[in-house]
């Protein structure tokens, strides 16, 4: 039986161990990792080093927090957050599909008291719905003016869906009107609709929104003139409002006065007040 373990290590004269500790040894000792130290010294040093790192990182996190919180504003919100919201838009925009339809409900389930919420741009006195005309800025045909009766000649689409407000409430409500995409095709606005954004505003320009064109062309986006089977009431934006289920209520502009198309983001009322531009659902 040959037990190799019994033979001494290579060489008959093992090299004498240097009494001088190497840099690594000294570093390990300073960090409390060396067995040369008493156990209490190891505990103390390693605790001190870990907690120093912990508090330094904590301080860095604290500092970063205030860097964000106290950053200069960009359209109503801290600039780093605005950047983040725009990145979110890029990440989540591709999920938008014309095949993803908002769930529709039987009209019997629609609310009878439909919540109007905001009235910016619709409370001005002296507005006369009977003389109202929609103004559409085209690329090469100037401004088209379209009356409400003309729009009512186009195929009507109606459905009830769960309207969602950015505040957090939602309500099943029933709307009728012209599909925005039907409107585009009827008035030969395909070239305009090839631009990135659609801008809409009230006649007095007090309220205005910008919408990415794919959302505007979503099959459930309506130029809406009926609510709950009745003509649209004034507080809901008579004679014509936007209903766009793939956006929060803030984008569902009431009392549309003007429509235009652009490759730049049209100005947007709530965007300027710190909200996400996209607001897609």
């Amino acid at each position: 039986m040959n037990n190799k373990a019994h033979t001494p290590p290579s060489g008959s004269n093992p090299a004498p161990i240097s009494p001088r500790p190497t840099f690594r040894d000294r570093l390990r000792k300073a960090m409390g990792h060396s067995d040369d130290l008493s156990i209490q010294k190891q505990i103390n040093r390693r605790t001190f080093i870990s907690f120093s790192a912990f508090f330094l990182l904590g301080a860095a996190a604290w500092k970063s927090w205030f860097w964000i919180k106290d950053a200069a504003q960009s359209d109503g919100v801290q600039a780093p957050l605005r950047k983040g919201l725009n990145i979110n838009e890029k990440i989540l925009k591709p999920t938008l599909s014309p095949n993803h339809l908002a769930k529709t409900y039987p009209t019997s389930q629609a609310a009878r008291n439909v919540r109007p919420n905001g009235n910016i741009g619709t409370h001005a006195q002296g507005f006369d719905p009977s003389t109202w005309q929609l103004e559409v800025a085209t690329l090469d045909r100037g401004v088209l003016t379209i009356g409400i009766d003309e729009l009512k000649q186009l195929p009507k689409t109606e459905f009830a869906f769960e309207f969602k407000c950015i505040e957090g409430w939602s309500q099943v409500s029933w709307w009728g009107g012209v599909k925005f995409s039907d409107f585009i095709h009827h008035y030969g606005l395909e070239r305009e609709a090839a631009l990135t954004y659609v801008g809409l505003s009230t006649p007095d320009d007090k309220y205005y929104v910008g919408i990415d064109t794919p959302s505007a062309l979503h099959p459930q986006t309506l130029l809406c003139y009926e609510m709950t089977g009745q003509p649209l009431p004034p507080e809901h934006g008579a004679p014509l409002r936007l209903i766009i289920p793939v956006k929060y209520g803030v984008k569902n502009l009431k009392r549309i006065g003007k429509i235009f198309f652009s490759n730049d983001r049209p100005r947007d009322y709530w965007f300027e007040r710190g909200y996400d531009y996209y607001c897609g659902l």
Partner: peptide
């Protein structure tokens, strides 16, 4: 502070 809350939350 809804707008601020949404911005922080979604980042």
């Amino acid at each position: 502070r809804l707008a601020e809350g949404m911005a922080f939350h979604f980042i």
